[in-house]
């Protein structure tokens, strides 16, 4: 199908399956349009008015026909629904071991940070054949990360994280578009995704300006912002220990539990009083406006590291 003239490149693992569904739908559209147009033309010519006084016999309708042409579209849309939904569900979750890249949308540019610390703007370098998961947020309005050649798209929202993934199957440079209107230079918020051979990607990583890894930057921030003065590792501080927290359930004062994921960590930084960990009092200040989106991302990257460590023994209930 690569030669089909009206088709964007298929450069990811999901592209082909999406195109198959697309072609099926196109064939369906062509088929039904043709059948309906042809029938109408045929009727209009065959039954054209031959004399002004003509009075055709009345036909009330036909229940079997109505049932038939209710059933046929129902069956067809059922097939499409099952096909497209299963494809969607299959493509929803990234495979295990996907490389994680952090993306921030900002009027009107894309900022990218690689796990090893490399940053780039309006470009995204990725290795061929490896699944890549993007964790995305916006500093201002809603944007949308769209790579037509990969057939992937996801809104990038302020105040929360969305994620998407792809696995490139073709070397080259592909369009990256913002697909959610975001203001004056929306049309200029475009860039490229550059797919490289894995070893070439390694060389690119090494050759580009070396930055800190997000975890290292996060650790520094953790110290600079004084997080560690309350969140003592052994759990004796006024704030809960953060060891073994990320990725696990946290009990709240309300009695509920939440999963400590990116969203929860982010909320706890910006609106710390929203969900208080059981046994603690709400004294943490908000870091709203004091951290950039990238810094928040870095801190969360560090919290992920801490999350893999063994938590301290649970402290006694009721401690003030």
């Amino acid at each position: 199908m690569q030669g089909f003239p009206f088709q964007p490149e298929q450069a990811s693992t999901v592209a082909r399956s999406v195109d198959e569904l697309y072609l099926f739908l196109t064939a369906l559209t062509v088929f039904f349009s043709t059948v309906i147009f042809a029938t109408i033309f045929y009727f209009m010519i065959k039954y054209r008015r031959r004399s002004p006084g003509e009075r055709p016999k009345a036909i009330e309708g036909s229940l079997p026909l109505e049932i038939l042409w209710t059933a046929i579209p129902t069956l067809i849309v059922a097939v499409i629904f099952v096909w497209s939904s299963s494809l969607y569900v299959r493509n929803a979750e990234p495979p295990k071991g996907a490389m994680e890249i952090f993306v921030t949308g900002k009027q009107w540019m894309w900022k990218v940070q690689h796990p090893e610390g490399q940053r780039e703007i309006n470009e995204l370098h990725v290795p061929l054949g490896r699944p890549v998961k993007l964790t995305m947020t916006s500093e201002d309005v809603i944007h949308d990360f769209f790579v037509p050649a990969f057939r992937v798209k996801k809104d990038v929202l302020p105040g929360r994280y969305t994620s998407m993934w792809f696995q490139p199957t073709q070397l080259g440079t592909f369009h990256l578009f913002c697909a959610q209107y975001c203001g004056a230079f929306h049309a200029g918020m475009i860039g490229s995704v550059i797919v490289m051979e894995p070893d070439e990607y390694e060389r690119w990583l090494a050759g580009s300006v070396q930055g800190e890894s997000p975890e290292a930057a996060g650790e520094k921030l953790f110290l600079q912002q004084g997080c560690g003065t309350c969140h003592l590792a052994d759990g004796t501080g006024p704030g809960p220990s953060l060891l073994g927290v990320y990725g696990n359930q946290v009990k709240l004062t309300t009695g509920d539990s939440v999963l400590a994921d990116d969203g929860y960590m982010r909320e706890s930084l910006l609106a710390p009083r929203a969900k208080i960990v059981a046994g603690y009092i709400p004294i943490m200040p908000s870091f709203q406006g004091q951290l950039t989106e990238e810094q928040i991302g870095n801190l969360i990257a560090y919290l992920r590291v801490l999350g893999k460590l063994q938590p301290p023994k649970p402290k006694e209930e009721g401690k003030k």
Binding site: L28, T29, Y88, N91
Partner: peptide
């Protein structure tokens, strides 16, 4: 139908 169908809408939306 292309847009009601999830998998193709991801590509075609917007």
């Amino acid at each position: 139908l292309f847009l009601a169908s999830l998998a193709t809408d991801v590509h075609l939306n917007g």
